[in-house]
Amino acid sequence: MGKHKAYLGVDVGSVSTNLVLIDPETDRVLTKLYLRTNGDPIGTVVKGMQKLAEAGEWEVVGVGTTGSGRQLAGVMLGADVVKNEITAHAVAALKHNPKVSTVIEIGGQDSKIILIRSGVVSDFAMNTICAAGTGSFLDQQAMRLGIDIRDFGRIALQARHPVRIAGRCTVFAESDMIHKQQLGHSIPDILAGLCEAMVRNYLSNVGKGKSIEPAVLFQGGVAANQGIRKALEKALGLEVEVPINYDVMGAFGAAVLAKERLQATGDKTRFGGFAVARSSFDSFSWECEDCPNNCEIVQIRRDGRPLACWGSRCGKHQVSSDSA
């Protein structure tokens, strides 16, 4: 048998980097990777590509990237589509359930709500100035209680009387939580209380003024937490569905977008091959002093050769992407 054809989707986020390969015919997810970015997006993408190469023989026929590191991953891999994560998540949600009306996405450092009406994004919002409604909040509190974040949801589901915890601010939530602990509330009740506090925070901050209608999809890393899902269902009075690939929906959406784009244009992929996994990448940044704008320039180099450059306002320092 020859290589398995697949579209590659890569979502480089602040906390996790996800890669998926989807079947060109059925859009089924063939393989998925969920890696911690650990502040090193370049290294994580390289590692991800190594792991994919080990997992099977693939012929990548198109690449899409998304997430806050989408541009970086885009030049490293030779992406055909570089899309923002809102569009990627919406596309993925529609692929999973064409009748979806609301997408709740809670990740490590950001959370969003996407409203979809008749198959088109009609409105969206992201958290703005605070991370109290995101995964990092739960991470912090789990650490404080000495609980593995993976057990968080399971324990929270055992709660009988969730306590009310002030969830406006991570720091205040912590002091309130300690107070509740000292009053003698059980750990499950406190964890369930944290889930409800986070959901309250999310709904009043990100979901404020938005009409949340069924079907509701819950995706992003935090969707693994059953306690949050239950708290969401309780607060909304609606059934909340967690899609099977909830943790890699952004990457899945990027792969679908790459497929749509290439099928529409008939172009060949610009994918640089799995050789990226053997290349060494580094980045180099400086402040351009050629004019008073003082732009911060970032240059990405592959094996010492400039691959791409961005940040300049005037277009100077740009490397043509074909030369790579």
């Binding site: 923002n84 569009t87 950001d110 198959g119 994004v121 009609s122 969206f124 992201m126 703005t128 100035i129």
Partner: peptide, 29 residues
């Protein structure tokens, strides 16, 4: 869009891109 000295460029760009995507997809429909 709210700006202050802490505004990050990445989040700003993401919101704008997503908004333009929303409008162009809607217009196509």
């Amino acid at each position: 869009l709210v700006v202050d000295e802490h505004t990050g460029e990445a989040g700003f760009q993401t919101r704008i891109e997503a908004f333009v995507d929303l409008l162009s997809r809607k217009r196509r429909e």
